[in-house]
Amino acid sequence: MWRYNLALTRRIFSSQPAALVRQYSAFRRLPRVATPVKDVSRLGFNGVPNMNNVTIQQYDPIATTILNEPTIIIERQIEMMNVVLGFEQANKYAIMDVMGNRIGYMQERDFGFFKAITRQIYRLHRPFTVDVFDNYGNVLMTIERPFSFINSHIKAILPDENRTLVGESVQNWHLWRRRYELFQRECENPSEFTQFGNIDAPFLSFEFPVMDENNKIIAGCDRNWVGIGRELFTDTGVYIVRFDSQQSFDGVYPQEMLSDKVLNYDQRAVMLSNAVSIDFDYFSRHSRYGGGLLSFGTYDE
């Protein structure tokens, strides 16, 4: 375990990008959005911007447990029935800090027999609800996605009595590029959303840098290679989610490519949700096509 964590830590702090990030087009916003991106240069607790117009505060459990980390690691757990029989199970993820210590976990809700059947029919198009837990089983946040035929639309929601929406990640379909637009909900105007970043990754990319309005990298989500056996027969990916442009990218990108802004807690919650969306949309090959070691299907994919 220690050897694995050490290797993973080296990857986090010393990896090199596959290619220089291209300059992306100016932000597009959903029709309802009319609020400019705010200045987040003033930093508060643990280097995170201290803004009044945010939903998640520094003392909230999701912030003190997970979102205050500059970098987190998400590992999707092995689904044995998926591996052996091709039966789509509810997804589970471990959340760790950069030293490999588990700081929480995520689990897709399993509503019994009917839900299990709909997972087999809709597979990666299915609607789902994923709860984010601390190590003691307390729900810190909920991630929801409605049925998705083409573009996924995923939401970060607090588990309070009002089910407060924090922000959204919206996939922007392209024939070969991997694109998302990331939005934070305005607290003062709950019907409005501000776009704080976009992802425009190349074909088959494992790296998903988030660009701010100045085409600078403000955050990112990278998928790690986990070995030939796990890659071929499972969907157990490992993802590095980088929240902090000032602390998470040492040795990864040149300093001039990095933003001078830092994500607030609402935006980090959206980034965490986006990592789940990336796993579903691009790295769940076995879940998409079914199969399994004991199935009688083809293995052409």
Rank of each mutant, 00 (worst) to 15 (best):
P17D: 15
H153D: 14
N52G: 13
I278V: 09
G44S: 10
L43M: 09
S277D: 03
F208Q: 00
Q77I: 05
F128R: 04
R28S: 14
W225S: 05
D110F: 10
N138A: 10
R76F: 03
G229S: 10
R177N: 15
I72H: 00
R102Q: 15
F203E: 01
L6H: 15
S273I: 00
V98W: 06
N151F: 05
P159V: 02
T65F: 01
L258H: 00
A275R: 00
L293K: 07
S248P: 02
S295C: 14
Q246L: 07
F233D: 02
Y180I: 02
N91K: 13
A18R: 06
V238H: 07
N138I: 08
E75C: 06
R3V: 12
F249E: 08
F133A: 02
G47C: 07
V21W: 13
G197K: 03
V48A: 00
A26N: 13
R32E: 14
L140R: 00
S287F: 06
V54N: 05
P202K: 01
N50C: 11
C187I: 11
D134Q: 07
C221H: 05
L294P: 04
Y282M: 09
N172H: 13
R145T: 15
D39E: 11
D250T: 10
I56G: 00
T64L: 04
V226I: 13
S169K: 00
Q77M: 11
R177Q: 09
W173K: 02
R76H: 08
P31S: 15
F133D: 02
V139E: 03
D281L: 08
Y4E: 13
N264S: 02
G292V: 10
N215D: 12
V262E: 00
E186Y: 04
S169E: 01
S148C: 15
I72Y: 03
T118V: 10
N224S: 13
F149Y: 12
R145F: 02
Q77K: 12
